[in-house]
């Protein structure tokens, strides 16, 4: 009796310790976030004004905004996501659904994980050789392609993982009522894995929205307004990079403000996407 009681006690204690550690982990994560976000808000917020969104990047010593950089970032990120996400989702679908046990899947999974860790500057150089050099000039399209290549491995990895976790019973139920494979995938597997796939896309957006290195050798940057996809285009990360390391106060201020804008945008996107996928979850 007493051993059973002490076993119970020790299990309870163990549980208590582990759960306290988990709470502590969450605490640590939140403290880090608060520290970084605090610094970002402290330095960035004072520079937020209407002119940030209506004026072009200024020369040193002048007041100005980030309009061309914000526009460029939005355009290239959207194209990058539009190009990269379908490829990533489809490849992930093949790996989890059609070719779960095929050799190709094993190879692609391996290769994809390597692609995940390829330094973004290497991707930038690849696209430079692939597009910029043959075209003879830098272009926003090349930048978007570099971003798309960064999107793909993240989306592939999450899509495959999430589809693999969809219980097979669901698929079998779909097949049992006569639905062909692709309808089962679309209407059953995607639905069940939706929130996870969205997480993957969000992580991909978060990753590319702050990337400097792949844009430097592809889209370059632009001091002026340009909406020409075939010409150098400004982007927030490259602008932040150039301004943050400059000696001029106005530029440094704009760099912090730009960083704050990127962070808040990613947050807003997360909330938005979560509210779309989450409604079903809570039911």
């Amino acid at each position: 009796m007493s051993t059973a009681a002490s076993l119970h006690q020790s299990r309870k204690r163990r549980n208590g310790v582990m759960m306290t550690l988990c709470v502590a982990a969450a605490g640590i994560g939140l403290v880090w976030l608060a520290l970084i976000l605090g610094a970002l808000l402290y330095k960035g917020l004072s520079g937020v004004s209407l002119s940030v969104f209506t004026e072009m990047t200024p020369p040193p010593g002048d007041a100005g905004g980030l309009l061309n950089a914000i526009y460029g970032s939005i355009v290239m990120t959207i194209i990058g996501i539009i190009v990269g996400t379908p490829i990533g989702v489809l490849a992930g679908t093949y790996m989890a659904e059609y070719g779960r046990f095929s050799k190709l899947t094993t190879v692609v999974r391996f290769i994809n994980d390597i692609l995940l860790s390829a330094p973004s500057i290497i991707i930038g150089l690849f696209v430079y050789e692939l597009m910029v050099r043959p075209m003879g000039h830098f272009s926003a399209i090349a930048g978007a392609v570099a971003l798309a290549i960064l999107v793909i491995p993240v989306v592939v990895r999450t899509t495959e993982d999430m589809l693999n976790l969809v219980p097979n019973a669901l698929r079998e139920a779909g097949t049992a009522i006569g639905a062909p494979r692709w309808v089962v995938i679309r209407s059953v597997a995607y639905r069940a894995a939706l929130s996870g796939i969205v997480t993957g896309i969000l992580l991909a957006i978060a990753r590319i929205s702050g990337e400097t290195a792949p844009l430097l050798f592809t889209a370059l940057n632009n001091q002026f307004w340009s909406s020409n996809l075939n010409a150098p285009m400004a982007s927030l990360p490259v602008t932040i990079f150039q301004f943050a390391l400059s000696p001029y106060e106005e530029w440094q201020q704009l760099a912090w403000t730009g960083a704050l804008i990127i962070t808040l945008t990613v947050l807003a996107l997360s909330i938005f996407a979560r509210s779309l996928t989450g409604r079903r979850e809570d039911k």
């Binding site: 976030l33 970002l40 978060a206 929205s209 932040i240 960083a259 990127i262 962070t263 990613v266 947050l267």
Partner: peptide, 18 residues
């Protein structure tokens, strides 16, 4: 949801800011 999103937010901070 808020805490989960807060942690996800860490991924959205540009790496140059880190």
């Amino acid at each position: 949801r808020p805490i989960g999103m807060a942690v996800e937010l860490l991924a959205g901070i540009p790496s140059i800011i880190y």
